[in-house]
Design a binder for these strands. Structure first.
Length: 730
RNA sequence: GGGCGAUUAGCUCAGUUGGUUAGAGCGUCACAUUGACAUUGUGAAGGCCAGAGGUUCGAGUCCUCUAUCGCCCACCA
């Protein structure tokens, strides 16, 4: 190698090398030589279009790239699907923030203009992460990059919706959902975060009882009282309708007054005997647990809070007040009429929106639901039977626990950015609502049909221009189809199902479980065989890395400082399974090692300047040192392959490192200097050096692809391939 | 509240079915200075393996409890 100074400089080669790889077409399995063994297919965990590279991506993609490169070099056709997720709420949130800066908002723009804006934003910033991933050296197939809102992809999403509908798995209904008044959308349980809040526990007189509540403003939505069936204190009241005195919603705000109300007492296990007074008010419209209790006991739903977090007409004179204000006023009034027994400070967790942090307001809302019972069973069975293996096995527990206790999936979202439902309403006819006896404030829509295309003529009134449902689908509904949606027919035939999915644990259920049942439902078999859950990279003091907390670390900084190989090395070196507290010194170790690899290669190449095929065959040993190094090599090759098959990347790298540095460089290279000086061993020693170098480059390549490719390019190997990337290991 | 996991050298971590003097990287100290590499070499210091109890001929490794920390799920009105 012509380098005069000893040091390896990644800056000089990495981007150039990546360009050559990309241009070679070998990231695309269609261009790979003949197929030995099964295809190897992986799916990139969809980064959000709003995302920029963080340590989690770096870890995940490095692992995935190791496997892809490893299998490619073993003659398998490898395909790694890249893409990004439109990330409904997250993206809408970012663009709304931008609009706010510009002094406007989405409502002023209108839906169509707003969605256009989001597309503009996506086209401008949505691909940044691709360039960042390229810097890391990952070898996914960019010719197959997809976005979850591409036309072809969207079509498959709509098809899935129609499919579920026709199968009878979709239904529409009122349900008390987690509602974010700020984002004006419902949120799934998984999209909530909890925040500790100092509140008050109010003890209110309710007929013969005193009960504790943190939310007195919901009292006008109370349609029952509940006690635990085993609570002897209230046994005699269960099933009775009581006529109790309570705060009236009539009259003027200045004069609080009492009024008699009828309310039923039910017995339900959800009630904790120990807490408060052991009796609760049931507000099915504004509490998720109460909703469940209410549906078990057929209690009506009375909505007293609307979508904007304000009191409805059912709150009488309190109508229009924000819930926080209403609470204050109602507490005051309860005090005035003598119904408030006492209040005490109370700390509890309140649900907040994971995007904007606004407090969640449970309200009843008309939503689309996907029945989960049978779908969940298929996903459960896939793992229980071992068709899909989760590594490490521990993660089967949260997976099965979630599926076994699954609730129907609320798939509609009231935002503008996403896949709009393929549902069309008639403007002139009224839909008959089966549960319309409930006083709900949602505006009703007309009759609807479900169709992939907008109908030319309304089948109901025969004259109106049908209106598409404003709701969009939950982002996860579309990402659940990722292993096949938007793929050409031939790709679906050739490249489904895949092999591995590598991801972080937090989306095991949100995403992985849903991909599994979607794959079974739409393609007839599971989308992948192995799911690898890797650890999370934490800050050095064990905190979660987060942009908002400012604790994030940018992998690009390290790539810039030390090069992509050293960064990959440092990540793999540390990421041995559990969560890791990030330590930059591992990258330093990587950097040093790359230099070692570089210089050892230079030495070998000065000793063996031409290759008549020596690098292709395992040579014979003539000395003890020869025997030792050849045995050590054979051992390391076997163990590395075993480790990678078991996803033990860190161990594989550490063992390789130990072999190359301490056994090959420290010992054999030093001995070789003597052996090269003696006629009897000279030639054979050079032969061994060349052989070990070539084989070591192959073994190291999946971990540190750039430097190994660069060295390989400078070697005089016989039967050299165009790239080390497509060298074969048998 | 339920579950999972962690606690080993100054720091970050290995330690695969229990078996002789517990390992690595980084850091520290001493010596070596141009021979592939000073992003180096040779060597050294540094650990009651969180604590207590138990099983065993033998425990960092298995069991129980305690303490501290982290994460996931559920959520209490």
């Amino acid at each position: 190698m012509e380098s005069i100074s000893g040091a390896y400089d990644p800056k000089k080669t990495e981007s150039e090398t990546y360009k050559k790889w990309e241009e070679s077409g070998y990231f695309n399995p269609d261009n790979l030589p003949e197929n030995k063994g099964e295809n190897y297919i992986a799916y990139m965990p969809l980064p959000n279009v709003t995302g920029t590279l963080h340590m989690g991506h770096a870890l995940n993609n490095t692992f995935q790239d190791i496997l892809i490169r490893f299998h490619r070099m073993r003659g398998r056709k490898t395909l790694w699907f890249p893409g990004t997720d439109h990330a409904g709420i997250a993206t809408q949130f970012v663009v709304e923030k931008q609009l706010k800066k510009e002094g406007t908002n989405r409502f002023a723009l209108g839906r169509e203009k707003f969605v256009e804006k989001v597309w503009e934003w996506k086209n401008q910033y949505g691909n940044i992460i691709y360039d960042q991933l390229k810097k890391l050296g990952i070898s996914c197939d960019w010719s197959r990059v997809r976005f979850t809102m591409d036309d072809a992809y969207a079509k498959d999403v709509q098809n899935a919706f129609v499919h579920y509908y026709e199968k009878g798995l979709l239904y529409r209904g009122y349900r008390t959902v987690n509602w974010c008044p700020r984002c004006a959308t419902s949120l799934s349980d998984l999209e909530l975060e909890y925040k500790e809040e100092e509140a008050k526990l109010y003890y209110i007189q309710y007929g013969p009882f005193t009960l504790a509540t943190t939310r007195p403003e919901t009292k006008f939505g109370d349609t029952g009282l509940a006690v635990n069936p085993r609570d002897s204190r209230y046994k005699d009241y269960v099933g009775k309708e009581l006529d109790i005195e309570s705060l009236s919603t009539e009259g003027s705000l200045d004069t609080p007054q009492k009024k008699k109300n009828k309310i039923i007492v039910v017995a339900d296990d959800a009630v904790d005997v120990e807490f408060g007074t052991g009796i609760i008010k049931v507000t099915p419209a504004h509490d998720l647990v109460d909703f469940e209790i209410g549906s078990r006991h057929h209690l009506p739903l009375v909505q007293v809070i609307d979508e904007e977090g304000k009191m409805t007409e059912h709150a009488g004179k309190y109508e229009g007040m924000k819930t926080a204000d209403a609470r204050k006023k109602i507490v005051e009034d309860l005090k005035t009429v003598g119904l408030l027994k006492k209040e005490e400070p109370y700390t509890h967790n309140v649900a907040v929106c994971y995007r904007c942090g606004h407090v969640i307001e449970p309200i009843p809302s008309k939503q689309w639901f996907l029945k989960m019972e049978t779908l969940a069973k298929t996903a459960l069975e896939a793992v229980k039977s071992g068709t899909v293996k989760i590594h490490p096995e521990n993660f089967e527990k949260p997976y099965t626990a979630w599926l076994e206790n699954i609730k129907d999936w609320t798939i509609s979202r009231q935002i503008w950015w996403g896949h709009q439902l393929p549902v069309y309403f008639c403007k002139n006819t009224q839909e008959v609502i089966s549960n319309s006896q409930f006083p709900i404030s949602n505006k009703e829509k007309g009759k609807y049909i479900i169709s992939l295309e907008k109908p030319k003529k309304c089948p109901f009134c025969k004259q109106c221009e049908m209106e598409q449902a404003p709701d969009v689908l939950d982002t996860w509904f579309s990402s659940a189809l990722w292993p096949f949606a938007g793929l050409s027919e031939s790709d679906q035939k050739k490249y489904y199902p895949g092999t591995t999915l590598i991801t972080a644990r937090d989306i095991l259920n949100l995403w992985v479980a849903r991909m599994i049942f979607s794959g079974i439902e739409f393609r007839g078999e599971v989308p992948f065989k192995d799911v690898l859950i890797h650890g999370t990279i934490l800050t050095k003091d064990g905190k979660r890395m987060s942009k908002s907390l400012g604790t994030g670390i940018d992998p690009l900084k390290y790539i810039d400082m030390y090069g992509a190989d050293a960064t990959r090395f440092g990540i793999v070196w540390q990421a041995s399974g559990q969560d890791i507290r990030w330590d930059e010194t591992a990258i330093v170790a990587g950097k040093k090692f790359l230099n070692k690899l570089w210089n050892a290669s230079r030495f070998v190449l000065t000793q063996a300047e031409k290759d008549d095929g020596q690098s292709l065959r395992a040579p014979n040993a003539k000395t003890d040192a020869d025997t030792k190094i050849l045995e050590a090599f054979s051992k390391i090759k076997t163990s590395v392959e075993k480790d990678i098959a078991q996803f033990e990347f860190s161990k594989a790298l550490r063992d390789l490192y130990e072999f190359f540095w301490h056994e090959f460089c420290d010992v054999y290279l030093e001995t070789s200097k003597k052996q090269l000086g003696e006629e009897t061993t000279k030639e054979n020693t050079a032969h061994i050096l060349l052989f070990i170098l070539r084989e070591s480059l192959k073994l190291f390549h999946p971990f540190v692809p750039f430097v190994t490719e660069e060295i390989y390019g400078r070697c005089p190997f016989k039967d050299k391939k165009e790239f080390l990337m497509v060298e074969s290991i048998l």
